[in-house]
């Protein structure tokens, strides 16, 4: 277990360093001179140089990179080049929105998938099982941001049930927050539900053929009882695996959905920063989003070890090689 913890931590740190380096280098190497892009090509060279010096852009890349990382470790991400706001503070204010969206979308998708996946596996040879499969095809194909737009059109504009484009923080009103997050969360959960349902269905089809299911039936459990007790638990393991693989897709989805519903999250921050060429804001925010994904991966690695003794054993075995 200690070995697993150690290895996961090393992976996390190395991945974070590698990711930060790639982000930094891409922005510096491909981006051209930042001071020029802020002031415009026609600005006179003296003021460009002065701005470069003021922002610390005249230092070697290695110094800038290490300075950025050192600041990051202390929670100081610097000030944006254009509007001069404190980047760490803005990210702190916005991260909750993105995390809420991702968390609730994941939970709702997992719950729906366990139901629909089991239902489809039990009815695999009937028409209604096929109907679920057809619905997952559609769920995989439809773009989340378009679902969001359609929801706004129907539920906000036509029916007037839910607000759109006005975010209410959790601290202000619980009910208000639920109302403002309901549509974006549902839109986000659609592709996830479709992907998860396919995995649950496949896992459940395997589980249904297991000996312990026959034993459970022989001991007098109904089919649904056996599925409720043994099936769901076994299918959940594969759900955790896919869940981790889909984290990136989920976070990417929140970036787009925040723009659709004008939610003040991290994705919204990055996209508006691109428009105003705020390089440092993009750099830090994208890195924070990457860190979120890596940390969740790390937690999943650890929880696997805790949940599944086979993985601990494999780890021990590997250490003897």
């Amino acid at each position: 277990m200690l070995r697993l913890l150690l290895r996961s931590t090393v992976t996390l740190v190395l991945s974070a360093l590698g990711g930060s380096l790639v982000i930094f280098l891409l922005l510096r190497a491909l981006g051209g001179d930042i001071a020029t892009s802020i002031l415009g090509v026609s600005a006179d060279p003296a003021s460009v140089a002065a701005l470069g010096a003021e922002l610390g852009l005249d230092r070697p890349w290695a110094v800038q990179y290490l300075d950025w990382l050192a600041g990051f470790a202390q929670g100081d991400l610097g000030r944006s080049y254009g509007l001069r706001y404190d980047i760490a503070e803005v990210i702190g204010n916005r991260i909750g929105v993105t995390l809420s969206l991702a968390f609730f979308a994941m939970v709702i998708a997992a719950a729906l998938a366990l139901f629909f996946g089991s239902y489809s596996a039990i009815n695999a040879h009937r028409r209604r099982g096929g109907l679920v499969s057809a619905a997952t095809q559609l769920g995989l194909a439809v773009p989340t941001f378009w679902v969001g737009l359609m929801m706004i059109s129907v539920f906000s504009i036509q029916l007037g049930w839910l607000p759109s484009g006005e975010y209410v923080p959790w601290t202000e009103s619980l009910w208000g927050a639920v109302r403002s997050l309901l549509m974006p969360v549902l839109a986000l959960s659609i592709p996830l539900t479709a992907i998860f349902t396919r995995y649950v269905r496949s896992a459940m089809l395997d589980v249904l053929e297991e000996d312990f299911m026959r034993t459970a039936r022989a001991k007098g459990r109904t089919l649904h009882g056996a599925i409720g007790v043994h099936g769901i638990r076994n299918a959940s393991i594969s759900l955790v695996t896919v869940g981790v693989m889909q984290l990136g897709v989920l976070i990417a989805g929140t970036v787009v959905i925040e723009r659709v519903f004008s939610l003040p999250g991290l994705g919204d921050l990055v996209v508006s920063a691109i428009g105003s060429r705020e390089v440092l804001v993009v750099q830090s925010t994208v890195f924070v989003i990457l860190l979120i994904i890596l940390c969740l991966n790390f937690l999943m690695d650890i929880s696997y070890g805790l949940l599944d003794p086979r993985i601990r054993d494999a780890e021990r075995e590997a250490s003897h090689v």
Partner: peptide, 16 residues
């Protein structure tokens, strides 16, 4: 694999 395509695109769009 953990890096979402959209995130890569946002960095590249800022740069080029």
């Amino acid at each position: 694999v953990a890096l979402p395509g959209i995130l890569v695109a946002l960095v590249l769009a800022t740069a080029i």
